[in-house]
Simulated assay, not measured.
Amino acid sequence: MTELALVVFDVDGTLVDSQADILSSMRAAFAAEGEAAPPREAILGIVGLSLDVAIAELAPKLGVAMRDRMVETYKSSYMNHRRTKGTAVSSPLYPGARAALERLSKREETLLGVATGKSRRGLDKLLEGHDLNGMFVTEQVADHHPSKPHPSMLEAAMHEAGVVPGAAVMIGDTRFDMDMARAAGMAAIGVSWGYHDRSSLRDADIVIDRFDDLDAAVKDILGI
């Protein structure tokens, strides 16, 4: 019997480049409350966290009610960008992402999953827009879990896939992804093209610079 392995992907900054809409939507959320938005680096630095946690990180001195309104403004702005521009423009796949997913999905011993700070609705729209429905056997979203780096998403993903931590790997672009993987007892592959700089990925087992390198990195870690 073939031993199964699970490869879990982050989304924003790993599979898709949604930074333009993230920046625009976060700036809209701050502007709606008459507040100055943080700099670009600070906004991209919280990508991967659940939205309520991300805004609290960026604006810890603002009241809870204001931050709750900002969450809703962000969501409305983000959805509007995707609706008006279309998914392919709003959140384009990084070069090589689709080919890498298709290669891995064709391996009978490999299961694919997602662990993202996106909402269920947001992930559904993204997968539909890129024709990726059915690609992942487990899809973990912010609606049902504590924010990264809590290991809940990965624990649920492994449970659904029926694999143990030693047969799973997390792929992401932020330190939150690396920390989440460590907390879940999993290996981690960092990608250098995302929203955190390479130094933030120091806890990764391997850091890759292009999707063409992913197969070899997965093989090195999981032996498949």
Rank of each mutant, 00 (worst) to 15 (best):
V169H: 05
V207T: 12
G185P: 02
R40H: 12
K106L: 09
E155G: 04
R182V: 04
P146N: 05
D52M: 14
G48C: 08
A161H: 05
D173E: 07
A42R: 15
E33F: 05
D124F: 14
L201T: 13
T2H: 12
F211A: 13
R121E: 14
G48N: 08
S147Y: 05
F9R: 08
N80A: 04
L4N: 08
I206D: 06
A204G: 02
D213G: 01
S76T: 10
Y74R: 02
D215L: 08
D143K: 03
D173I: 06
D205E: 07
M66D: 15
F9Q: 06
D205R: 08
R103F: 12
G172V: 05
S91T: 13
E72P: 09
E3L: 15
S24V: 00
V169C: 07
P146K: 01
A204C: 10
D131E: 10
V141K: 09
H145Q: 13
A156P: 03
H150V: 07
G96P: 09
R121T: 14
L101V: 10
P149L: 05
L214C: 03
L4T: 09
K61E: 12
D10I: 11
L132G: 13
E108R: 14
G190V: 07
I171C: 04
L15T: 12
R182I: 02
M180S: 00
L49Q: 13
Y74C: 00
G129N: 10
V89R: 14
A99Y: 00
A188H: 04
H130A: 03
D131K: 14
A56Q: 09
R69D: 12
L111Q: 07
